[in-house]
């Protein structure tokens, strides 16, 4: 690990003011960043420990939204009564990720910035455009069983690893950030970037901006939601495919739907196509299959991961059946 300077501001403005220089990073839970520093993938010259900032609360706002502080731990969010009752998709997604120890450490803000687990990103002896821009992608012609089938480019096919983000994508969350020039709100679908020609850029967060909160806007039917994760082992494993769904079914017809996929995309994959296919349709298996076909319509398989396309479809169908029933 490269040496770094560690500072511990206890005021948000001071934290932001100290983060503007190049190669400065905020650190909260540290579960991903310290791991990457040990591997010399991340080499910050200075770390700003933000754990003393007052970003630890979960609040129900008068407009019906829920505002989640960026430093709320994954386990605290997952077990929060409001989240369990009104946003089960988010609680289930959080509890399907990592291990209990890591969930006790990892924060909401950090989870938004989680890096890919593509093995070629992690192994510094291989070229990787995300790690060393312009060096090439080892996964495209390498062992790519765990890589993405949606949102890939000629430069990168790395899967986005987060479960939490898939649920937040389905819920249309809003990311609140603050920088030296002020505050702004980023809609979830605009927060993560597709790799395209510059896979080293993963989000629209600007350098020096601090994530302060994630807001869940009110959705009437978010209590009827579910996260289903399929993986190589039963627990403590990244997704091969996952689905976050919410459905509003009335008299056997789907009035509204939210769908996002994980484990298959280069970013948390909200599928507006699947949602369009569902709205107005009967809540039955054929509708769910049609939605799954629409969601994976643009999927591009690689040598070892073609199975993910059908797996993701079946995962989505099963998640929809669980929430919408089979009327």
């Amino acid at each position: 690990m490269e040496p770094f300077k560690l500072i511990h501001p206890n005021d948000q403005h001071a934290a932001i003011a100290s983060s503007g220089a190049a190669n400065v990073k905020f650190i909260a839970g540290g579960t991903n960043l310290i791991d990457l520093m040990k591997l010399d993938i991340e080499k910050p010259a200075q770390l700003v420990d933000i754990n003393s900032l007052k970003l630890q609360t979960i609040e129900a706002l008068p407009n019906g939204s829920v505002r989640i502080g960026a430093l709320v731990k994954n386990s605290d969010l997952a077990y929060h009564p409001v989240i369990v009752k009104n946003y089960p998709v988010l609680s289930e997604a959080l509890l399907s990720g990592a291990s209990p120890q890591l969930r006790n450490m990892a924060t909401v803000g950090g989870n938004l910035l989680q890096r890919t687990r593509c093995p070629y990103f992690y192994d510094t002896s291989f070229p990787c455009n995300k790690r060393v821009p312009g060096s090439g992608c080892s996964a495209i012609n390498g062992y790519n069983r765990n890589n993405a089938v949606l949102g890939t480019s000629t430069q990168c096919i790395a899967t986005h690893p987060s479960d939490m983000c898939v649920a937040m994508a389905a819920l249309g969350a809003i990311v609140h950030v603050e920088g030296l020039t002020g505050k702004r709100q980023i809609p979830f679908h605009e927060f993560h970037l597709l790799p395209e020609q510059t896979p080293q850029y993963e989000t629209t967060l600007k350098h020096g901006e601090l994530i302060t909160a994630v807001e869940l806007p009110p959705i009437r039917y978010s209590a009827k939601s579910h996260y289903l994760k399929v993986r190589d082992r039963h627990s403590y494993e990244f997704a091969l495919a996952s689905a976050a769904v919410a459905l509003n079914v009335s008299n056997g017809r789907i009035e509204a739907a939210r769908v996002a996929l994980g484990g298959v995309g280069t970013k948390p994959w909200r599928s507006v196509e699947a949602e369009k296919a569902l709205v107005g349709a009967a809540a039955d298996e054929q509708s769910y299959r049609n939605a799954a076909e629409a969601a994976l319509n643009g999927a591009k398989p690689f040598k070892d991961n073609a199975f993910k396309i059908e797996l993701a479809k079946r995962t989505l169908v099963r998640a929809l059946k669980t929430v919408g029933g089979m009327s």
């Binding site: 579960t31 310290i34 120890q101 450490m105």
Partner: peptide
């Protein structure tokens, strides 16, 4: 030493964490 095995688990303020991923 990478948060994958749990051998380093300790309790901080009563909560279990991986001490290998904590400065």
């Amino acid at each position: 030493d990478h948060g994958q095995c749990g051998a380093c688990t300790v309790l901080i303020n009563g909560r279990r964490v991986n001490s290998c991923l904590t400065f």
